[in-house]
């Protein structure tokens, strides 16, 4: 280490702090992801339920993530009518 680099050496703790803040905000969001599906399921059920009687366990929400496309699949079984299938591609 020469004299120049000694003076130029940026303290490393602020770098650590910033890296952690960015990383953890991602990881915390990631952890919340399974819950997102639960929330979606509840809200979809509430909206559809306003118009059609739907049974709790007849609603399936599935999310698949691939490299270039993510799919949100919502499958609702409607009684006394033709099976309604809603597919959303995001």
């Amino acid at each position: 280490m020469n004299l120049f680099s000694l003076f130029n050496r940026r303290s490393s703790a602020p770098v650590a702090r910033e890296r952690l803040q960015i990383l953890l905000s991602h990881e915390r969001a990631e952890r919340g992801r399974p819950d997102l599906l639960v929330v979606l399921r509840e809200e979809i059920l509430a909206v559809v339920g306003r118009h059609i009687a739907v049974e709790q366990d007849k609603v399936r929400v599935k999310m698949t993530r691939d490299d270039d496309i993510s799919t949100l699949e919502i499958d609702i079984e409607v009684p006394n009518a033709a099976r309604a299938r809603v597919l959303l591609h995001a």
Binding site: S11, S12, A13, P14, A16, R17
Partner: peptide
């Protein structure tokens, strides 16, 4: 500045 502070 070589180590994370308690506050951090």
């Amino acid at each position: 500045g070589e180590m994370l502070k308690t506050e951090d």
